[in-house]
Design a protein around this nucleic acid. Sequence first.
DNA 1: TGCATTACCGAACAGGTTGTTCGAGAGGAG
DNA 2: CTCCTCTCGAACAACCTGTTCGGTAATGCA
Lengths: 185, 185
Amino acid sequence: MPGNLDRRVRRTRQAIQRALVELILEKGYEAVTVTDLIDRADVGRSTFYAHFDGKQAVLFSNLSEIAFLHPPISADGPLFAFSLAMFEHVLEQRDLVRALLGRRSGRVVMAHGEQLLQDLIRDELLARGAGRSTSLELVVTCVVGAFMALLSRWVDEELTATPAELDAAFHAAVGPGVRAMLAQA
Amino acid sequence: MPGNLDRRVRRTRQAIQRALVELILEKGYEAVTVTDLIDRADVGRSTFYAHFDGKQAVLFSNLSEIAFLHPPISADGPLFAFSLAMFEHVLEQRDLVRALLGRRSGRVVMAHGEQLLQDLIRDELLARGAGRSTSLELVVTCVVGAFMALLSRWVDEELTATPAELDAAFHAAVGPGVRAMLAQA
DNA sequence: TGCATTACCGAACAGGTTGTTCGAGAGGAG
DNA sequence: CTCCTCTCGAACAACCTGTTCGGTAATGCA
C-alpha cells in the first residue's frame, strides 16, 4: 500500500498531476484552466478542489517528485560535481522537467527551483572555505543563473547537447572564476 | 507635438502604461486584471481595448522604452563592457525595470529580455573571434543566465550592491572562463 | 463476506474576468 | 468655429473560479 492512502486518492492525484504536465506542454502553464485539468484527468470538479487549492498546488506537488534537486554537498572532489548527475537525471524525466522549468512553465515554480539550487551552491562554496559575504551571494547568483539558463534552454530543445557537453560548458564558464575567488579566501 | 499623436492618445497610453507598472509592483503581473488597469488609469474599458490587445501588449510597449538594452557591440576594449553602464541605467529606472524583469514580472517579458541580451553577448563573442558552434551557444547561455540572475535579484532588492560591485562580480564569475575559451580559438 | 467509512460525481451557484458593441458626448486639430 | 477623432460607460455573452450538496460507488477492515 504505497503511501498508506486510499487507492482512489492515489489514482485521482496521479491523474491530475499527469494531466497538468500534459497540458502545460501543450498550451503553457498560464493558459491551462482548472476546467481543462479536470476534463483531461476525468475527475469531478469538487473532487479536484478536495485535493488541491488550485493549479499552482498541483505544480508544487509535482516539483517535490524531482528528488535529484537535493543531492549531497561535496566539500572535496571536483567543484560543482552535482552538475553532470543532474543533467543526466533530467534527461530521464525530460517531459516533467520541461513542464516545470521550461519556457512554458510558470514563474513561481521557476523561482522555487532557483531557490533550491541557490542553497545547494552556496553551501558548497561555504564548505570549500568561502566566507559569508555580499560578494559570495553575488557569485552564487551568477552560478545559479548560468546553470538554470542551460537547463531551461536544454529541456526546451533550443540547445542540442549531451549531459556531458552541458556539464563541460557549465564548468568552463563559471569554474575558473569561482576557483579564482576561492583561492583568494 | 511629440510622436505626432493626438494629445488624448498620448495621455491615455501613458496613463495605462504607468498604471500597469504600479500595479505589477503592488500585486505582481499575474494578479493584475484589465479591470484593475482601467480603473487605476481612469480610462474606459472600450478605450483600453482600442489601444492594446490586453495587458501583455502594454507590458511590451513598456519594454521598448528601455533603450539601454541595445548598446553598441565592442570588439576591442574590455570584455563585456556593456555591463557596468547597464547596471547604472537600471538604477535610474529601478521601478520600471523591477516591474518588467523582477520577481513579480511575467514569464514572457523575461524571455524577451533574455533574448535581447543573448544576441548582444553572442555578437560580442563572435566579434572577438569565437567561431559559431554549439559550445559557443552553451557559453552564451551561461553568461546571459548569470547576468539576468544578478539583475533580477538586484532590482528585487534581494541583493544590496552598487552597480560597480555587480559589474565586478559578473566579470569575476564569467570573465576568466570566457577568456579561456576565446584564447583557445 | 458484510458493513461502516470514505471518496467521488455532477449539477448548480454566485462572483469575477474578458473582449466586444454601440450611441452619445467631449476634446483636439486646423 | 467646425469637423473629425477619441473617449465614455453601460450592457452583453462567454468563460473561469471555488463552493455546496445529496446521491452513488469504491475501499478497507473485521
